[in-house]
Design a binder for these strands. Structure first.
Lengths: 143, 143
DNA sequence: CTAAATACTTGCCTAAAGCAAGTATTTAGT
DNA sequence: ACTAAATACTTGCTTTAGGCAAGTATTTAG
């Protein structure tokens, strides 16, 4: 058991590094990881609310509020107040925001491509399969 | 290709969460992740130097210097100045430091055990195999 | 119609971490 | 042997990330 735990720890250290390399490409931009994550969620879920983002990325809501304010000021996202519930605003990326997000996203894609570029087609498919199996195992419900 | 990259991204998001859950158990302690990482490296590499730690965990050396100073003050590590090179100090965990590190390590082991406890023996072994295959694929040298 | 809940917002604060300049020591070039 | 460059830190200063708590506006429930 101890052995298994150590092997997992080993992988976690290894994979933390992999993720670090990928994230570095974003951190070299003028946006923080949290900002990009927020852009990511808005891009993939237009009209999302601050509350929903908070649930997804588990960030302090005060911090998130300020972060959104900053992105609005930078003309990256816009807020449209709900007509049904004046407490809520729906968030969307502006055209500018989409462009910025897609650029960052592309940069991160490039970093990922870099990491797997030395693998041939078959190996790449195998890698994905391994990933999927791990996710299945780790999210498998207890009996 | 884009598809594969997205699948990797998906896994990375998933796994960032997994690692986050494990790390949370450490963050609930009075030590920061960086501090524990430093303890980890010293524990596994007695007589390591600040420089070597910096290479391994890629942390700002000013920050690292202060961090080491703090851990020395807390009687967790001690510095022994090299007799060959007075610029260098060798770092070791004190007995107290070892106890603290091992406690934190145990806590993190428990968190990992928790995550895999619903898997039976065979599944756990499968998981490790998947991890190993991924590490091999991702560290595979280019031809 | 009032109390509680929800969706934020704002003020205040600390810890994490980066950058640049500084010190001590060692190494390399002449 | 002597000086310049390199190495291994250290220190001062600053920014950023993020947490917590109280506050505001609005909606919902009893």
């Amino acid at each position: 058991m101890e052995n298994i735990v150590n092997k997992i720890r080993r992988f976690n250290r290894f994979y933390t590094r992999v993720i670090g390399v990928i994230n570095n490409h974003i951190l070299e931009s003028q946006y923080s990881l949290s900002e990009v994550r927020v852009m990511y969620e808005i891009y993939h879920n237009p009209k999302i609310t601050a509350r929903q983002i908070k649930e997804i990325i588990e960030v302090d809501e005060g911090y998130l509020s300020r972060l959104i304010k900053k992105l609005v000021k930078l003309n990256i996202i816009n807020k449209i107040k709900s007509q049904d519930d004046y407490r809520i605003s729906y968030l969307n990326l502006t055209e500018n925001g989409k462009k910025i997000f897609l650029t960052l996203n592309q940069r991160s894609s490039d970093a990922i491509s870099e990491i797997i570029q030395h693998l041939n087609q078959k190996e790449q498919e195998e890698l994905i399969l391994l990933y999927e199996k791990i996710e299945i195992l780790l999210t498998k419900k207890r009996n």
